[in-house]
């Protein structure tokens, strides 16, 4: 035990060079880490919705009176009273969801297919997202919205597994982005993030150096090939003159020459461009 302790004393042995504190280590690389801003789970950036519910025309007639014959022949003021502008907001949302579901229905009486369900939830989600912007402290609304978003995500996952073509068609129709969940969940910490950034930095340096080395070798290639041809020719001649077994074939030398010519042609082409 004493021996170990003497070994570990950082003062006198050269071992002290290897023993360093593993904690509170600070890298002298100048990597700047910016913590990403937290986006609340109900925001469209997070849920993947590419459009909001606000694009609906508020001068339309209420959903329940759309097919009314009396209203179509009525006075302009009456028509105005039956428009969305003069009705509670829920009527707008109802119309929005109705129109949204209409886009993906299989047939007129379709209310329970998976696309219709997802479209319906999407309509509600987009309406509630607008609402959430106005009342950010409404906790019940937030919970409902979050649950709905998760449910939609789960069913999109199922649909993808069941029927991929329909899944893609639906994404295009309801105009939303689907991203699968990440493999592992973790908190974003300074330490971990810096580790990853440092790894990236090292990888970049490595790639740069490899490229540099490759360029250098390519630069030296013609000279090397000329030298090779000369040497091979010399060996072949010597072997012939001495009457020894000829190990260098003429084809090998010709192959090298061809390589050299091709290389020169290629270089000229690149220069011309």
């Amino acid at each position: 035990m004493n021996n170990v302790r003497t070994l570990l004393t950082p003062y006198h042995t050269p071992l002290a060079n290897f023993l360093y504190r593993s904690y509170a280590f600070k890298s002298d690389l100048k990597i700047k880490w910016v913590r990403p801003q937290k986006i609340p789970c109900y925001k469209p950036e997070k849920t993947g919705d590419l459009e909001g519910a606000s694009q609906i025309d508020r001068k339309q007639v209420l959903l329940d009176f759309k097919e009314s014959k009396e209203l179509s022949t009525a006075d302009d003021n009456v028509k105005k009273l039956f428009s969305l502008e003069f009705a509670p907001h829920k009527h707008t949302n109802r119309l929005y969801v109705h129109e949204f579901v209409d886009k993906v229905k299989r047939h007129e009486y379709d209310v329970a297919s998976i696309e219709v369900k997802i479209a319906k939830w999407t309509g509600v989600i987009r309406a509630l997202q607008e609402c959430m912007e106005r009342f950010p402290r409404n906790k019940k609304l937030k919970v409902n919205l979050k649950e709905l978003i998760d449910k939609r995500k789960k069913h999109l996952k199922y649909l993808r597994r069941w029927d991929y073509k329909r899944f893609e068609w639906l994404l295009e129709r309801i105009n939303m982005v689907y991203k699968p969940p990440p493999n592992e969940f973790h908190w974003v910490t300074r330490r971990e993030s810096l580790k990853k950034l440092t790894d990236q930095h090292c990888e970049k340096i490595r790639e740069e150096r490899i490229n540099q080395y490759r360029q250098q070798l390519e630069h030296e290639q013609p000279a090397f090939l000329e030298e090779k041809i000369r040497t091979l020719q010399f060996i072949r001649n010597e072997q012939k003159e001495c009457g020894a077994e000829v190990t260098v074939a003429q084809e090998e030398i010709d192959g090298c020459r061809k390589l050299l010519e091709d290389l020169k042609l290629k270089r000229e082409d690149v220069k011309m461009k």
Binding site: Y178, P180, H186, V188
Partner: peptide
């Protein structure tokens, strides 16, 4: 619209 071909990670 479909990003399932990518390895999704948490933005750090």
């Amino acid at each position: 619209k479909d990003f399932t071909h990518l390895e999704i990670y948490i933005k750090y």
